[in-house]
Amino acid sequence: MEKIIAGKTVNVNEEGYLTDFSQWDKSIATEIAREEQIGDLNEKHWEIINYLQEQHKNEVPLSIRKIGKSGVVDIEAFYALFPQGPLKKATKIAGIPKPASCI
């Protein structure tokens, strides 16, 4: 379905995840972050978002364990930066699919 985010019409699924990454840009990320009550994105947020997008591009399945070993952020800080479900929120902001991981 279509949704207007940051003044742009984008395609999202029923949970609000972008279905076409080419429609993603930083203003969309900023607005989703606000909607998800993450607030303003700082440098560390962007670093994680870039990392997640890179992993997704390389078709690496995402998990909390992998994030912890990424060297980008440790698990505790990841939870602090994206409270209330960090992996699902961070991927939503990054414009990539919600990971189907339980770990």
Partner: peptide, 18 residues
């Protein structure tokens, strides 16, 4: 194979996750 951690690492992950 499923990227599941061992017991000790799993405890560390849970602790870090709150």
């Amino acid at each position: 194979k499923l990227d599941m951690p061992g017991v000790h690492e799993f405890l560390d992950i849970m602790k870090a996750s709150g």
